[in-house]
């Protein structure tokens, strides 16, 4: 590794991490100081509680090159990653979740970045994390996403990634507020590779999301990244109006036949009329639903508010000089 390379390792911190923040800081600084010329550990304090704030103050006194950026409240993951990338200085930036990602893998991720990859995405067998239904859902979603957007996201890819400065600069230019790190990385392209790893299981309940939350995220991701559903809606709308024109032709034809003296029982039309309006209403509401998703997205983006607000920033002050000195007078 080149001696003057600067590596940023960034992780979100939340209240549930209290038990292992110090352990994480110890592991990650030990590994970085052994492998990298210059490093910084960027902790994005995602509006955690006072106990965590105290722990972070201790971390800043004991470990060098740690920076804490405290967000004004708890934000979604995507926004926290945006804050991490905005504040990072490194030639390479590693994003990780201190609750599950192993610091020992960081040098491997960086080595691949140095070999020329702009994004090295961590891949893990998610058996430990997701239910079988969840994993099936992830696979279906992954296929669907690729079909709708034209670029692929690894179904087992995690948010444990190493990024080059080039790709970080591209991603930070995108100020969408509904943001999913994995998909942004895939969207900007560049050279991508995957690295599989074994997650560490710290003594903390897994951050599982409910099925509803997963579906919500899936819809959000697709709406943010693809206009295909909207195009489908137009297609369905055109088809429906065509069917509707055909049906009017049919009704006119019947009435013409009747006035010509052909005996047709009118009461027979009851079923088809109801059927027709049911189908039309179904299509209409479906289109409205899709439109409202897009309209709400347009509203969100058009407000132009900052993605996040920073409460304060603080950084390490370690008096190294006195660490291993014996005070003999």
């Amino acid at each position: 590794m080149k001696p003057d390379v600067l590596v940023t390792v960034a992780s979100a911190v939340q209240s549930s991490d209290a038990g292992f923040i110090e352990q994480f800081a110890r592991e990650v600084t030990a590994i970085l100081s052994a492998h990298v010329g210059y490093y910084e550990v960027l902790l994005i304090d995602n509006g955690s509680d006072d106990a965590v704030v105290k722990i972070l103050e201790r971390v800043l006194k004991h470990f060098p090159f740690v920076r804490v950026v405290r967000l004004s409240r708890c934000y979604e993951d995507g926004i926290v990653f945006a804050a991490a990338l905005d504040h990072s200085l490194g030639d390479f930036v590693v994003l990780m979740d201190m609750a599950s990602d192993p610091p020992a893998v960081v040098p491997d991720l960086i080595a691949r970045c140095e070999a020329g990859y702009d994004a090295v995405v961590g891949v893990t067998d998610k058996k430990w994390h997701d239910s079988p239904i969840g994993r099936l859902g992830a696979r279906v979603f992954s296929r669907l996403f690729e079909a709708l957007t034209g670029y692929a996201v690894h179904p087992d890819g995690t948010n444990f990634v190493a990024l080059s400065r080039r790709i970080v600069n591209s991603i930070t230019k995108i100020r969408d507020r509904q943001r999913y790190m994995k998909h942004l990385t895939a969207y900007v392209g560049f050279n991508r590779t995957y690295l599989s790893y074994q997650p560490v299981l710290r003594d903390v309940p897994l951050r599982r999301r409910s099925l509803l939350a997963a579906v919500n995220a899936a819809v959000g991701t697709i709406v943010s990244n693809s206009t295909m559903p909207l195009r489908l809606v137009s297609l369905v709308g055109v088809t429906a109006s065509f069917v509707s024109v055909m049906y009017s032709v049919f009704v006119l034809a019947i009435s013409a036949l009747r006035s010509a003296g052909v005996r047709i029982n009118a009461a027979e039309g009851w079923a088809s009329t109801n059927m027709f309006s049911a189908v039309m209403f179904f299509l209409l509401f479906l289109m409205l639903a899709v439109l409202s998703e897009y309209v709400s997205k347009i509203m969100n983006e058009s407000q132009q508010r900052p993605l996040y607000h920073v409460a304060y920033e603080s950084n390490s002050s370690v008096v190294e000089a006195f660490k291993d000195r014996v005070n003999v007078v």
């Binding site: 003057d4 600067l6 010329g37 210059y38 910084e40 200085l89 490194g90 030639d91 008096v319 190294e320 000089a321 006195f322 000195r325």
Partner: peptide, 22 residues
Amino acid sequence: RDPEDNIRSARKRSRYPYMIRD
């Protein structure tokens, strides 16, 4: 602490790489 003692014994590793990048 004696500041003079501190400046003599501190491990003075430059932070120029951080400064210039920011």
